[in-house]
Amino acid sequence: MTWTMPAEWEPHERAWMAWPSADYTLGERADEAWGTWAAVANAIVAFEPVTMIVPAHLKDVADRFLDPAVDTVEGALDDGWYRDIGPTFVLGADGDAALGAVNWQFNGWGAQDWANWEHDQHASLIATGASGADAIDSPLVNEGGGIHTDGEGTFLVTRTVQLDPGRNPDLTEADVEAELARTLGARKVIWLPRGLTRDSDRFGTRGHVDIVAAFTRPGRVLLHDQQDPAHPDYEVTRQIRETLEAATDAQGRRLEVVSLPAPTVLRDDEGWVDYSYVNHYVANGGVVLCAFDDPNDAVARDILAAEYPGREIVQVDARPLFARGGGIHCITQQQPRA
């Protein structure tokens, strides 16, 4: 079977999410975490079906927060970042109607000492089984937030994730590209040097691409644009822009890079923020976009409305998500319509 990963703007069967349960995510304000995960699910379910995986002991809690239209299934989890612990769904190429689910190896974002993955290393099997997808097992340690595609075989990745010694210590770029080709139909992999500063610190992912850059159509990429020279991501995003502007996609096209200004706030109580509007979810007929109570919320909304014409833009306060290590894209996983 030949498989290909569709673009995120292609039609979806449903969205998958996982209810947060880890102490390091819930913190002292568990209701804030649960309320934010639910706000994202409740926004998406207005556009397409949503299935939330919920540990048995938290079922009553989830029912209290979730819109009744959100389906729930029981499953053992360590935490709620289903983009990373869930499968990456693919479709059979050449018109084949088959649905596949790539089950990556998950080891807590590179075996980080604060992470738990006893259950999360198997959590992709929940959606794989429930969706009826053909399981595609991969030896690659990878997360869904570490890849982004244009749906035509071009993929964005970062060296700090795919070649992380804590993930894939013995693999080369060529090894990673070959596995992405086998499982996802990759024909061109664009290697970005790194991710954002906060996401590269101790409690980050070591540089996921889905907070930095995202295709909105073939040949066109949104870039997180930190415009304040005081923030270290000013230099990071300059380097990434140079890489993207020098790259060509699987069709041989030069990429058009669209700046998506970062929020104006630079720091929180923990240091430099990595607040990013790039980390959004594209639904059937809508886009669920991060908000930060920031003047650039409206700027981002207008840019996304232009990039996704005909889709309704809904914004959800994502500050509680980013305080816990991620954004809206990080907690969602699309299942394409076969």
Rank of each mutant, 00 (worst) to 15 (best):
R206N: 15
E270M: 10
Q227H: 13
V221W: 12
V258T: 12
V258A: 05
F292P: 05
A291D: 06
R202L: 13
L255G: 14
E242A: 14
T243V: 15
H224E: 02
Y234N: 03
G219C: 04
V236Q: 09
Y275S: 05
G204W: 14
N279K: 07
H280G: 03
T205W: 00
R238P: 02
L289V: 09
F292E: 03
L223F: 13
W272E: 01
D274Q: 08
T205F: 02
R254I: 00
Q226L: 01
D274P: 10
V212D: 11
N284I: 01
A283Y: 14
G286M: 08
H231C: 02
D210K: 12
F292C: 08
Y281N: 01
Y275A: 03
V299Q: 05
T248Q: 13
D294K: 02
T237F: 05
A213L: 14
I240T: 06
Y275N: 06
A230M: 01
G285F: 12
Q226G: 03
V265D: 04
Q251D: 15
Q239N: 12
H224Y: 09
V287R: 08
R267V: 02
Q251T: 10
D269G: 04
P261M: 05
N284S: 02
D269N: 10
L255V: 07
I211G: 14
L222D: 05
A250V: 04
A300N: 13
Y277W: 06
E235D: 09
E256N: 05
V288W: 13
L222K: 11
D210Y: 07
P263K: 06
L289N: 10
A230P: 00
L223R: 11
D228N: 12
P295K: 07
L289K: 06
H208C: 15
V278M: 10
G252M: 13
E242V: 01
D294C: 10
G207C: 06
Y275R: 12
Q226W: 14
G252S: 11
A283R: 04
W272N: 00
V257Q: 11
S259A: 15
D294H: 09
A262H: 04
R254Q: 09
T248A: 11
T243K: 08
G252T: 13
D268G: 06
E270D: 12
V287S: 04
A250L: 04
P229C: 01
A250D: 08
A246L: 07
